[in-house]
Design a protein around this nucleic acid. Sequence first.
DNA 1: GTCGTGACTAGCC
DNA 2: CGGCTAGCCACGA
Length: 100
Amino acid sequence: MFTKAVLEATRKVPRGRITTYGEIARIIGRPKAGRAVGNALNKNPYAPIIPCHRVVKADGKISGFNKGVKAKIRILEIEGIKVEKNKVVNLKKVIYHWDS
DNA sequence: GTCGTGACTAGCC
DNA sequence: CGGCTAGCCACGA
C-alpha cells in the first residue's frame, strides 16, 4: 500500500535528520507522488509511531502537521535542526540520504 | 466510474 | 527572490 510505504520510509529517517516529500515519493517508487505522500502523512493512523515532523518540503519549508506547524518546528529544534520563518536553515546538512 | 481535494514539485515571469 | 501555473498521485464521496 502506498500510504504504508510512505509511513515506513518516514519511520526510517534517523533522529537529527529530515527528508522531503519528493524524496520519500522517489524512494517508494512514485517520484511524482509528492502530493500523495503528504496526503498519506496527513491522514496517517500511525501518527504516534511515525516521525512526520522530519518531513519537509523540497525547499526545506515546513508545512502542515497534525499537531500544528509550531509543534513540528519545536520538535525539529529539539532534534538539533535549526528552523527559521517556518523553514529549515541548514537544510543540506540535515537532509537524509537514503542511498549513501 | 468520475470528481474534488490536499502536509507537493518544477518551471516561468 | 517571491508569486503564479500546470502536472502528478492517492483517497474518499
